[in-house]
Simulated assay, not measured.
Amino acid sequence: MLAQFALFDGFDPLDVIAPFEVFCAARAFTDRVDAEFASAEGARDVPSSIRAVSLRATAPLDPDRAGLIVVPGVAGTLPPQGKDAAPRGPQPADTVPDIIRRALATGLPDVLAKALATPGTTVATVCGGSLVLSMAGLVRGRHATTHHQGLELLGRGGVHVTRARVVDDGDLVTAGGVTSGLDLGLYLLERETGPGVALAVEELFEHERRGVVWRAPA
């Protein structure tokens, strides 16, 4: 299975690197998985939300090639939430929704929509990656999670917000805050190859997965 990790301007690098390294490490134990960085525009250098950090996409996002597409969130602040919330003082120019809206003005939403419609392809998200899907109107009625600060915003998109470290809704698998990328990567690896390879990578990383994976009823 080829796992493509979606890069877009403003992505959070840790959202991508943690699960990407899980799949790269798995190559020492199995030939059933591979991983690459990709973007909707194809091969290019993609700037992250962290100044001076960028990653190189080596291929176009392609649900016909990839069995898994992983969508990261972005690093930024959230606007005030709640019906009585009001801005306090000057607001930053680049909030999380601002960065996501710019990403959604590219070809990214069309590729993700195709991925979700392609049988056999799973779309996974880390942290605010589920907000990317929600703001694109692609996951209404689905179960998903995100960083705890973005749960209200996620629910506005018609998503069934599920407070779990990892939420498995079939061909949509989402994870919580940024450090949950490791748990997501290991869970997806286990789902694809079985527990042996996932356990080997978990031990290699000296990481113990947290929480219970929520799974949609069959």
Rank of each mutant, 00 (worst) to 15 (best):
E41C: 03
L186G: 09
A25L: 15
E152W: 00
T193Q: 13
T95A: 03
V96G: 01
A57K: 01
L186V: 10
A164E: 06
L131A: 05
D62W: 01
V167A: 10
S48D: 04
R209Q: 14
F20E: 06
R56S: 11
R32L: 12
A93K: 13
G181N: 09
L151A: 12
T162N: 04
P13V: 01
R140E: 14
E206Y: 04
G128F: 02
G42R: 06
T118R: 13
R88I: 14
E192V: 13
D183L: 10
A40C: 07
V70H: 11
M135V: 02
G141Q: 05
V178K: 06
E192D: 07
V212H: 10
V126F: 01
I69T: 00
E21L: 13
A105V: 03
A218S: 14
L184Q: 01
V166H: 09
L108S: 04
G155H: 03
T30S: 15
R163M: 11
D34I: 05
S180Q: 05
E21D: 15
L68D: 04
G42I: 09
T58L: 12
E202H: 05
A93M: 05
C24I: 10
S48M: 05
A43Y: 00
T122F: 03
D64R: 15
P119Q: 05
L172G: 03
A113T: 06
G158E: 07
P97V: 08
R27K: 14
A124P: 11
V212C: 01
T121K: 01
V167H: 06
P80H: 13
A85L: 10
L61N: 01
V173N: 02
V212Y: 00
A43R: 03
T106L: 07
V53E: 02
V197T: 15
F8C: 08
A218F: 02
G73S: 08
G194V: 08
P19M: 06
M1P: 12
K114F: 04
V166I: 14
V126Q: 04
A117M: 01
A59Q: 06
T58H: 02
E152P: 00
Q4S: 12
D94A: 12
V166C: 09
A115K: 06
L104F: 06
L138T: 02
A105P: 02
E41D: 14
D15F: 07
P90M: 13
G89Q: 06
D168G: 04
A25W: 09
R51V: 10
G141L: 07
L104V: 07
F205S: 12
G107H: 00
T174K: 10
R191H: 10
D34M: 06
V166P: 06
P47E: 10
D183R: 12
L116N: 08
V46W: 02
A124H: 10
S49A: 13
L182S: 00
A18D: 06
P63G: 03
V139T: 12
D183S: 08
L188A: 13
R88E: 15
G155L: 07
F37L: 15
L116I: 08
V213D: 03
G42C: 07
A43W: 02
A75G: 11
G67P: 08
L184V: 02
R191G: 09
G176R: 15
D64E: 15
L116R: 12
T77C: 10
